[in-house]
Amino acid sequence: MIKVGIPRALLYYQYYPMWKTFFEELGAEVVISPPTTQIMLSSGSSRVVAETCLPVKVFLGHVLSLVGKCDYIFIPAIRSVKKKVYNCSKFLGLPDMTKAVIPESPSILDIDIDVNKRKRDLYQAIYQLGRHFTWNPFKVRQASIAAWQAHLSYIQLMSSHRLTPPQAIERISGTLEANPKAYSTHSTSTQGVIAIIGHPYLLYDEHVNHRLIHRLERFGYKVLTPEMLTTEGLESATARLVGSAYWTYEGEIVGAGGHYLENGADGVIGIMTFGCGPDSLMMDMVRRHAARLRATAFMSLTVEEHTAEAGVVTRLEAFVDMIQRKRRRQVKVCV
C-alpha cells in the first residue's frame, strides 16, 4: 500500500479530515507526523535562512520527521480558496521550498489550488493528484466528493459542538475515549471567558504556544477560539472591520478578533509569530479596533524560537489579573 505523509503543521488543522478521506478513498495509507517537539523545530530551523517564519520552520521539522516513513509527502500550494482573496507567499512556495532545502524528502505531491482560474483547471489539478494512485477518473471524482463531504462535516462539527480542530479530529477518528479529560475542563470554568485568535497552526501547536489553552483553563477561564464561530459570523465581522478580506485566513484574526472584542469575551489574546507578513498587519487592525472600542482587554503575544515559557506565563498572569481587577470594579459599581 502506498503511504502518504502529511505533516502535522500549517494547514493540517484546517484540512486534515479532507485530505485523509481523499487519500484513503484512493487506497493509500495516511501517515501523520507526531506532535511538534523541540528537536523537530531545531532540525527544521537548521535548514532555512534565519528570517524564515517560525511556522515554516516547524513545518520543515515535520517533513524531516516523515523522511523514510512514507512514499510521498503531500504539500499543496494553496494560492486562493475564495475569489480575489489570496494566501501568503510562503504557502505558495512551500512545495518548491521544501524540495530545495530538504533534498532527501520523499517525492512531493503538490497541487495548485487557485479558484481565480477556471473550474476546469481545478478539476484537472485534482485529477493530476489522483493519477498517482489510480488511472480511473471516476474513482478520483468519488474520492474528491467524499473528501469534500468530510471537510463540511468537520467544519460543522467544530462550530456546532464548539470544538477545537484537534478535538474534532480526535472525535472523527474515534480516539475520543482515550483522552476524556480534555473536554471536562470546559465545564469547571468560572472565572470568565477569554478568546484567543490566530492561525490554527499557532493556537493548537502546544509546543509553539507553550500550552496556552491549557494554562488559561487552569486559571479557571473558558477558552473560545475562531473555529467556534460560524463562517458567516467571521465574514461579517471581517467586513465590519476592514471591508472585504484580502487574505485567505483573515477571518481567523480580524473576523474573530472583531467579533470577540464586541461581545462574548472578557479578554482577547492574539497570537502571532515574529516576522509573519499578514499577521503583522491584521493584528494591528485588531489592536486599533480594541483601542477604539475600549471595552474588552486585548493582548497580542508574539512567539518565535527564542520565546521562553516563563515570559509567556508572566504575561498571561498579568493579563488575567487585569481582567479580574476590571470585573471586581464592575461588580462594585453595580452594588
Binding site: 535562512v49 528570517e51 507567499s89 510562503k90 512556495g93 518548491d96 530545495a100 533534498p103 507578513g277
Partner: peptide
C-alpha cells in the same frame, strides 16, 4: 526588505 515574504522563499531556494 526584512520580513519580505516572497523574497524569503526565493532566498531559501536560490542556493540550491
Amino acid at each position: 526588505p526584512f520580513t519580505c515574504m516572497p523574497e524569503i522563499v526565493a532566498q531559501n531556494i536560490m542556493p540550491t
